[in-house]
Nucleic acid binder design. Structure first.
Lengths: 118, 118
DNA sequence: CTGTATCCCCCTCGATACTG
DNA sequence: CAGTATCGAGGGGGATACAG
């Protein structure tokens, strides 16, 4: 329950760039959002399949933060076994151009990054 | 001189989203790029004025990483006092849509984020 | 299936002082 | 002016075990 927002607020005006970026601060958030844009609705286990390198802990953590930021919604179905579905909120959906821009760029230029093996 | 790239490579394909995001991993990189898009060419001290909350150390660090990634260029003028100018490379300029998307979203929706004062 | 709870390493980043 | 050097804290995030 830390959930400490960086309280960056680094730059006075016009620096909403940063505010936006804080949303993706978490290491996996962009990926989560990306998959939600792709698939619409996803269960916890489906995330795990799509992002095998993310630990449970981190996945839960990042999902919770995205939820706290009002970008995704979490619906629990009282069944056995339990089922939980995540989807984008209306606010979350407005991020589409951002995620899209990220993906577009990556598709075109990611390969041209200088490889720096430590 | 660690310059350790996270070697994330988390997700097999289609996850260039993440690759792109790694470029902005640094806390201030997006802001640096943003200012370069605004102003074209900037000196070290000009960055400092535009980003008063960034320490020298961090500014230097982030500039170096952006340079190492081939996104900005660094030109030293052998004068006294020294002058160093930074500007976007051709590759760096291709990030315009991304930075623009980040800023657009921030301008529209940053205020609607849930305020979480820890 | 969908998570919590711990433990703990290690990297990130701030503060401060020094340099060519 | 434009940086380096060093120190040190803090928290992000991995591994693992446990729970409803």
């Amino acid at each position: 329950m830390p959930r400490i927002r960086h309280t960056t607020l680094t730059c006075s005006p016009g620096c909403t760039v940063e505010a936006t970026l804080e949303l993706f601060g978490g290491k996996w958030k962009a990926l989560i959002l990306y998959h939600l844009f792709e698939d619409g609705v996803l269960r916890f286990s489906e995330f795990r399949r799509r992002m095998p390198n993310v630990t449970q802990r981190m996945l839960t953590n990042q999902l919770r933060e995205l939820e706290a930021d009002g970008l995704i919604s979490r619906t629990v179905f009282p069944e056995v076994p339990p089922r939980v579905e995540y989807e984008l909120t209306d606010l979350g959906k407005t991020l589409k151009p951002v995620i899209h821009a990220l993906k577009e760029w990556g598709d075109k230029y990611a390969h041209s990054l200088k490889q720096k093996k430590e």
